[in-house]
Simulated scan of single mutants.
Amino acid sequence: MHHVPVSRDGASGLRHGWTTGACATAATTAAYTALLTGEFPDPVSIDLPNDRHPAFALAREQLEPDAAWAAVVKDAGDDPDVTHGALVSARVTRGEPGSGVLFRAGDGVGTVTKPGLPLAVGEPAINPMPRQFIREHVAAVAAAHGGTGDVVVEVSIENGAELARKTWNPRLGILGGLSVLGTTGVVVPYSCSSWIDSIRRGIDVARAAGREHVAGCTGSTSERVAQELYGLPEDALLDMGDFAGAVLKYLRRHPVPRLTVAGGIGKLAKLAEGHLDLHSARSQVSFTALAQLVAEAGADAALVEGVRSANTALDALRQCQAAGLPLGDLVAAGARRTAEGVLRGAPVEVDVVVIDRAGVIVGRG
C-alpha cells in the first residue's frame, strides 16, 4: 500500500498523520476533478494550513455518468486513533445551479441529533473546518476545469457506525457513525486533540440541555459511581480521562453550576499535587507529597515513612485505612483545591469523589 509521506515531530520522532477532514477533502478533490475531466488525479494533492500540501494515493475510484467516487485510507501517523486505517470516501454529484456545496452523511458518518454542537440538528457530522477545506477545494477544481462548484458531497467512512461506538459520538447525540473532524488537517501524535475536543463538545451539549451538574470522570468505574451517587443523566457525564485541565479550563469559560470530579486515588493524587494531565507517561504520583499530606493530618512517623516508601497510591491508602487515617478525604480536598485554582472564581461549585479499584468510595471532598 502506498503511504502518504508524513512528517515527523522533531522532539518525539513520532509520525504526524492526516485528519479525517483532510482525507475527505482529498477524496472530494479527486472525485470532483474526475467528474469534470473524466480522469482521477492519483495521487491527489490538497492544500492545508501552515503551508502543508500532502498527496494521497487513491484506494478506490469509480466514475459514473453523473457521479464520481474516490476513497483514501486514513493514516493517523503514530497516533492511537480509532480511525487509523479507515477508508474515507466521497461521492460527488452535480447540484442545482447556485446551490454551492451541499453535504450528506453517507454510510459510517453520523448525523447531529442534539443541540449544543457547532452544527445544527439534522446536519451530517462534518465539522465546520473540514467543510471549509472541502468548499475551498471544490472552488479551486471548478475554477481549474470550468465547473460551477454546485455539488453534493456525500462522505462515507467504512465501518464508521461500528467504530463510532468506541467514541463519544453516541453521548453527544451524533448517531449512525463517526464525525469528520480536524482543524489543521494534521494529527499530532498523542496530542489527543479529538478527545479534548469531545470534552468541550460534551460540556456544550450538557449546557444546551440545561444541565446544572456535570461529572468529569477518569474512567468507566468512576463514571458509574458518580452516576449512581447523583442520579446524573447520560449527557451530564464527561469522559475526562486524563485531561482534568481540559475540563476545568473549558468550564472556566463556559460554566455549569456544579462539577463533580471522580476518579481513582492514583490519578486524583496527581491532581491534588497540581498536575492537570493525569496520564502515567506525563505525570507521576509523588509519595513525598502524599507523605506530607499524611504528616500534616497528624500521622505518626511510622505511617509517614510507610506512605513515603509505598509502591502505589492504593498501597498508601491501605496503610492509612489500617491506621484509621482518611487519606482518600485528604486527596479529595487537595484535588478540589487544584480544581478551584484552575477555575479562578468561575461560578462552578466543585466536589471530588475518590474511589479504589473496585469502585468503592474511599474519599470525598
Rank of each mutant, 00 (worst) to 15 (best):
G146A: 08
A86V: 01
D107L: 08
A68P: 12
W69L: 14
P97C: 14
D107G: 11
G17M: 03
R60M: 12
H53V: 01
S45K: 11
D75R: 00
V101W: 14
G108A: 09
D66R: 15
P65G: 14
V101F: 14
V109P: 08
A57H: 13
V73W: 12
A68K: 13
D78Q: 10
S99E: 13
A70Q: 14
F133D: 02
H145N: 08
F103H: 09
P65D: 15
R104S: 06
Q62I: 10
V88T: 07
A67G: 05
A55E: 13
V141P: 00
V112K: 08
V151C: 02
P128D: 15
T93D: 05
P41F: 14
A71R: 11
A90I: 09
D47M: 03
A27S: 01
S12G: 02
R52K: 12
A67R: 15
I46N: 04
G116V: 01
E123W: 03
A59W: 09
C23T: 01
L119A: 06
W18Q: 01
V82L: 10
L117P: 03
G85L: 10
G13Y: 06
T29A: 04
A142G: 05
A144P: 00
L14I: 01
R135S: 08
A142W: 06
S45G: 07
D150A: 03
H16A: 02
H16I: 02
A120L: 03
